[in-house]
Computed example of a mutant assay.
Amino acid sequence: MDQVGFVRKVSNGKVEVEVRRISACGDNCKSCGGSCHAPNHVVILPNNIDAKVGDLVEIKGETKNILKYTMVVYMIPFTMLILGILIGMKTFKNLEISNYEPLSFLIGLVFMALGYFIVKTIDKKIGKKEEDIIRMTRII
């Protein structure tokens, strides 16, 4: 995955880079007619190429790693939601509670919140690693 970003801020060996997101239609809004707007995304990266504020930089990331971490972010909370609903349904059915569906859904939401906590913990561990998933390669 290659992107071009705009350096907004430089501090403590890190840079804040604004990257334009690519819309699903390929940014050809005249042919799409959906009039969607893809907002910019800000990432903080190590300043390994001595970029300055206002520079345009090339950003590269391995697609395999990006997809892997995307799956973690989306699938852990979703799996926890489904697991919580199933556990809640089985438990409340066995307890012979008549309105077990809404209660099971609430249990699912609690499990999903737990999933987000797990994702946050994984994110902190990944953030401490020295290997960069996304890195700047050159100033354009």
Score class of each variant (00 low, 15 high):
95 L>N: 04
57 V>D: 08
22 I>H: 05
38 A>I: 12
23 S>G: 13
75 M>N: 06
120 K>I: 02
118 I>W: 06
138 R>K: 15
96 E>W: 03
99 N>A: 08
97 I>A: 03
50 D>R: 12
11 S>H: 07
128 K>C: 00
101 E>Y: 07
109 L>M: 09
99 N>M: 03
58 E>D: 08
25 C>I: 11
77 P>S: 05
54 G>S: 05
15 V>C: 07
36 C>A: 15
102 P>R: 00
112 M>P: 02
55 D>S: 06
9 K>I: 01
12 N>D: 15
19 V>M: 03
97 I>D: 02
51 A>C: 04
21 R>Y: 03
109 L>T: 03
13 G>W: 08
31 S>R: 11
105 F>C: 05
72 V>A: 04
122 I>K: 01
97 I>T: 09
123 D>G: 04
43 V>T: 09
123 D>P: 00
38 A>P: 15
83 L>K: 00
73 V>L: 07
2 D>P: 06
60 K>H: 15
129 K>P: 00
68 K>T: 09
24 A>G: 12
123 D>K: 09
112 M>Y: 10
43 V>W: 02
104 S>Q: 05
14 K>S: 05
53 V>H: 03
4 V>C: 00
49 I>V: 15
45 L>Q: 08
74 Y>C: 04
43 V>L: 10
132 D>R: 14
96 E>A: 12
90 K>S: 06
91 T>W: 06
104 S>H: 07
